[in-house]
């Protein structure tokens, strides 16, 4: 196995007295797609937020290409260009058009000028079927379209790694497909991806590896076939049974 892009070593995190992550060890290889599954409150979202430093970890190490970014006081600003994150609730900036949403960070952080940016961003919009919506405001778009814009916004920073925090959970069922299609496209490009998801079918189809989280630990991990067809742990079986009904 090549050097991991992202490694977690004994990551712990509590909110007040509630221990949410109780020592997580994990490696994500470059280009790998890893799905985190588990019940609500099992720590999936917190784990993702610790991976890009949005939540400071209490203990343990988060190594990005071998550099510990969880070191207290570490300047995360340059790191954040390399790890994109997309949230469940889109979090587009409502006072800007979708195009401006996408251009803001490249202009301010990468110092790209408008002229060089325009064709690149337009191409991204075209690729994800949103060219007609480039100059609309977020509230003029459907949830699925907004979420695709949020993905484009993260991609515009040319990250090596992308984190997806239940990005289809806030969508109407008929809009989930268009967002998952975007992920399929990214899958083919070799971007390292970590997803927290409830879309079991999707995880089974595309993930390289699946981690089942339960009460702040990784209870079981393995290939999608292993986890979904032959889960070893009772808790995993119970969770899958409850999800699949």
């Amino acid at each position: 196995m090549p050097d991991p892009r992202l490694s977690l070593r004994g990551v712990k995190k509590s909110f007040d007295d509630v221990s949410v992550l109780k020592g997580i060890d994990m490696d994500v290889a470059p280009g790998e797609m890893l799905c985190l599954i588990g019940a609500s409150g099992s720590g999936k979202s917190t784990l993702l937020r610790c991976m890009n430093g949005l939540e400071p970890v209490d203990d343990g190490a988060v190594l990005l290409d071998g550099v510990d970014i969880a070191e207290p006081g570490f300047d995360l600003t340059p790191i954040r260009q390399r790890i994109g994150i997309v949230f469940q609730s889109f979090n587009l900036f409502p006072h800007m058009t979708t195009f401006e949403n996408v251009c803001l960070a490249p202009r301010r952080v990468l110092s790209e000028n408008r002229d060089s940016l325009h064709p690149r961003i337009t191409a991204l919009f075209e690729r994800f079927g949103l060219a007609a919506h480039m100059h609309k405001y977020p509230d003029q778009l459907s949830g699925g379209q907004q979420q695709r814009v949020a993905v484009i916004r993260a991609l515009a920073m040319k990250p090596q790694t992308m984190l997806f925090d239940e990005i289809t959970s806030a969508l109407d069922p008929e809009l989930v497909g268009e967002v998952l299609d975007v992920l399929r496209q990214l899958r083919d490009e070799g971007i390292t991806m970590v997803l927290a998801t409830h879309e079991m079918g999707f995880a089974r189809e595309l993930a390289d590896r699946v981690c089942f989280m339960d009460q702040g630990v990784i209870a079981e991990e393995g290939s999608p076939d292993q986890i979904f067809s032959a889960p070893q742990k009772i808790r995993t079986r119970q969770f899958l049974a409850s999800i699949l009904r």
Binding site: N52, L54, T77, P78, R80, Q81, G84, I85, F87, S89, N91, L92, F93, L104, A105, R108, V109, R153, A154, M157
Partner: peptide, 16 residues
Amino acid sequence: TSQRNAAICLGLSERD
């Protein structure tokens, strides 16, 4: 705060 988080996660400085 989700607006601030989204901006920070894109790499924007506090000021921007």
